[in-house]
């Protein structure tokens, strides 16, 4: 499965991150090529979310670097972050807006024209078509998660960073997520997923096990 590194390779190079003098991550290496999925595993508190936030450019490493298109992401943070879809513990859904309005806002943030028919198709795929005009405040946890994942299908971004995306999802939702991932990876996208669940085996997957680095 080893492919030659290209422009579209995400390289994690000797990453070290500490918080308040406690080293959370140390000596993290990996490369993720276009079309590959990096699954991050490890016990609770081993720094999975931190690593994902580093990869999304929210945090800066204390040592080492992350390279995208052969350039450290700290040097091109704004440009780099435009390539990213990040779904974290919090869904990023505005509870005062309806489901459709949330998608509309997402399109505006990505500077993409909002097509109602396209949005409908995405919502149908996520199984949310019957609650298009419901306020997000009234959605269940699973529905919120599906709406957050709808962002992935709505606007095309090269790098997906998903932190425990299967939380609150039912089996049907997980199937949809796997379909989305397959589609994304076959189009040459990169996905970095932190999860304990086994994802679809058909994805070209790399594993990254985080040990207990906090010594």
């Amino acid at each position: 499965m080893q492919t030659t590194p290209t422009e579209q390779t995400l390289v994690i190079d000797h990453l070290r991150f500490e918080r308040n003098n406690i080293t959370l991550l140390d000596q993290i290496h990996s490369t993720v090529n276009a079309g590959e999925l990096l699954q991050v595993r490890g016990a609770n508190g081993c720094g999975k979310s931190t690593l994902l936030r580093l990869l999304a450019g929210y945090l800066e490493p204390h040592d080492g670097a992350i390279f995208w298109q052969n350039k450290s992401i700290t040097e091109q943070r704004e440009c780099y972050q435009q390539n990213i879809h990040y779904v974290g513990h919090r869904n990023g859904i505005k509870s005062t807006l309806t489901v459709a309005e949330n998608l509309k806002l997402q399109c505006a943030l990505s500077n993409i024209r909002f097509e109602p028919t396209n949005a409908q198709a995405v919502l149908k795929k996520m199984g949310l078509q019957h609650i298009t005009d419901k306020h997000a405040a009234h959605l269940s946890a699973g529905q919120l998660r599906r709406l957050a994942l709808a962002r992935l299908a709505l606007t095309p971004n090269k790098i997906w960073i998903l932190d425990e995306p299967t939380t609150a999802l039912d089996t049907e939702g997980q199937t949809v997520l796997n379909e989305l991932l397959t589609q994304h990876l076959t189009h040459g996208g990169i996905a970095i997923v932190a999860t304990h669940q086994d994802l679809d085996k058909s994805h070209p997957t790399k594993m990254l096990h985080l040990g207990a680095a906090n010594a």
Partner: peptide, 22 residues
Amino acid sequence: RSDAEEGHLDLLLLSAHPLTLL
């Protein structure tokens, strides 16, 4: 505040628009 609580702030940082304009 609500942006931070709901995680929407994370999305603002990833937007195609400069954060300053947002």
